[in-house]
Amino acid sequence: MEKQATINLEQQFQDRVDQDIRIEPKDWMPDKYRQTLIRQISQHAHSEIVGMLPEGNWITRAPSLRRKATLIAKVQDEAGHGLYLYSAAETLGISRAEMIDQLHTGKAKYSSIFNYPTLTWADIGTIGWLVDGAAIMNQVPLCRTSYGPYARAMVRICKEESFHQRQGFEILLTLSRGSEAQKAMCQDAINRWWWPSIMMFGPADDASPHTAQSMKWKIKRFTNDELRQKFVDICADQVKILGMELPDPELKWNAERGHYDFGKINWEEFWQVISGNGPCNKERIAARVKAHEEGAWVREAATAFATKRAQKQSAAVA
């Protein structure tokens, strides 16, 4: 294509984005936009799928039938969310099989939070409160993201997510009103999950390579630091209802800014976990690979059967 034509297309594309007109699969889009979306949507999908593992870890040990049912429903929702997102990414010309392959071979990243272990029942509550809370904060603006299929998937996801955070907080609330051992369990889980949770918003704005372009294309609509601050403000208040503390001695209300100040994030840990050195990276991927490989014969059998059935049907017609 001639250079001038490309420039025009790019200009038209940017105009549409600026006017908040959704970009749809068949529309022309810059290659980089497509790549950025594939990367972001597939990472998001992978995060949902890998995220099933730390919570699924407690399904068989959930301490009441009601908790067991809600936890299964929640982990199942995550499978659904992964599915919606993979589907959205597939509209960009990549197959689910390819994306899964990228996850399994370590080429694709996913939210580093899921590389932390779930050690007690309180972790399930804390994941609901903090991890889902941080996820929702990231996800709500994505309901208005410029790419249509992604935005529509996010609308559905956000609708379904709303029970997740509530079930998490309810677990913690019950623990916080329980025995001394339960209270201690609750505080311990908050201590372990707080910092990884606020890392979920991604690197600080001055160190985030993708944010600026993503903002211009309206893939992202708030910066990492804006969302992180909002999250800290909300949690600092919510933790009081639990009668627990956030593990940050520097956390303090700043009347001048109208926000909570908080301590320095250990970005070294963040980069280490992202690049494969978290406590559970290898186990998580190994579990996904195992499920996928052990499911291969099942998927093959279903394909073979479908082919046979189709042949029988067309033979019957002929």
Binding site: R66, K68, A73, A79, Y86, G295, V298
Partner: peptide, 28 residues
């Protein structure tokens, strides 16, 4: 429910989890 998160693919993971949920609901 031991399959939840470990099914042969996403669709069937969701399907078997639904059955687990039905059964736990009946049990309750």
């Amino acid at each position: 429910s031991e399959w939840t998160g470990h099914g042969p693919n996403l669709e069937q993971d969701i399907a078997i989890s639904n059955i687990a949920l039905d059964q736990i609901g009946q049990a309750r």
